[in-house]
């Protein structure tokens, strides 16, 4: 009898392990995703670079001015799950992405899969980038290839058990990697739609402004309601109409993104400084679109 129970338990464990192995397998984009892409447009690619804010994490820590265009990596993100280090994504062939194809890049951005077919950790916000258009990614990739190469070798992530089991990210993705829109709008206002794309996709605003579950997944039902700072002290503000932005007009929000000043002429601070500097480089219509979207989303109380 005991023997039979034991054998059943072992068999069940094997079945569970095999299932977990298959469920956690990395998946990549199908070839059809790459069909009919127009030629890359560098100017549009540069806009995506500012919208995406790649340099906020991938420029060398403390980079100023033109150094902000060198994606040398090395910035530490000290999270509850361990220390992540932003990799070198400059066009360097050894230390960076110099040997990557557009297909490799698109799979990292939309599927969270690296060049060797491995899962990438979601400290890299592919949960937002997955909503980006292939054409925008193609333009961005072309622009990134024009940036200076850096031979800096960024440190490897330092993660404790169980977060160091990379394969397990596959299970996490089944719960949290979703390519659909977060907010559903009744109207189809063009500015709101553009703002939605910028905020939910390349701008990846939700990655800091939305609270996370215990295993680090975004709680989409309280989207943009503010969160504990994922990388240190303090909080990231609630930017729904239920938070501090309630009294801001759309014009106030657009002006903040352009200048870094609140309606009270307090200034941008913390990790938002780099984000705002990038947003300031977008066309004014894009900042206005982000503002229109933020005024239109559901209000929530503070998520922290």
């Amino acid at each position: 009898m005991i023997r039979r129970i034991f054998i059943t338990a072992v068999l069940l464990a094997i079945v569970a392990a095999v299932a977990a192995w298959f469920l956690s397998a990395p998946t990549t984009l199908s070839q059809t995703a790459f069909a009919d892409l127009p030629d890359a447009d560098l100017a549009r690619g540069e806009e995506m670079f500012w919208a995406g804010g790649c340099n906020s994490c991938h420029a060398a820590p403390g980079a100023k001015g033109d150094e902000k265009l060198v994606m040398a990596g090395g910035l530490a993100l000290k999270s509850d799950f361990g220390d992540f280090y932003a990799p070198n994504i400059s066009p360097d062939k050894d230390a960076g992405l110099g040997n990557w194809s557009f297909s490799d890049f698109a799979n990292s951005m939309k599927m969270g899969v690296g060049r060797d077919g491995e899962h990438l950790y979601p400290a890299f916000p592919y949960t937002s980038y997955t909503r980006m258009d292939m054409q925008d990614l193609n333009d961005l990739w072309a622009y990134m290839k024009t940036l200076p190469a850096s031979s800096n070798v960024a440190p490897a992530h330092e993660l404790g058990f169980p977060f160091n089991i990379r394969r397990a990210v596959g299970l996490w993705k089944r719960l949290y990697l979703k390519s659909g829109s977060v907010v559903r709008f009744a109207s189809s206002d063009e500015a709101i739609q553009r703002g939605q794309y910028l905020v939910e996709g390349p701008g990846h605003c939700g990655e800091c402004h939305t609270p996370r579950s215990l295993i680090g997944g975004l709680k989409l039902d309280v989207w943009l309601s503010g969160a504990k700072n994922p990388d240190g002290e303090g909080v990231i503000p609630n930017i729904t109409p239920g938070g501090g932005l309630k009294s801001w007009s759309a014009g106030d929000i657009a002006y903040y993104l352009e200048s870094g000043f609140t309606p009270d002429f307090d200034s941008v601070g913390g990790s938002m400084v780099s984000v705002q500097a990038n947003m300031a480089k977008l066309p004014a219509a894009d900042r206005e679109a982000i503002a229109a979207y933020l005024k239109a989303i559901p209000a929530h109380g503070n998520g922290y």
Binding site: N229, G232, E233, G234, V235, I236, P237, G260, F261, S267, V268, G269, G270, S271, V273, S274, Q276, A277, N302
Partner: peptide, 14 residues
């Protein structure tokens, strides 16, 4: 100066 200083030396707490 505003944002440079607030980037490093201010933390939003609520």
């Amino acid at each position: 100066n505003c944002s440079t200083c607030h980037e490093a030396y201010r933390v939003k707490k609520n």
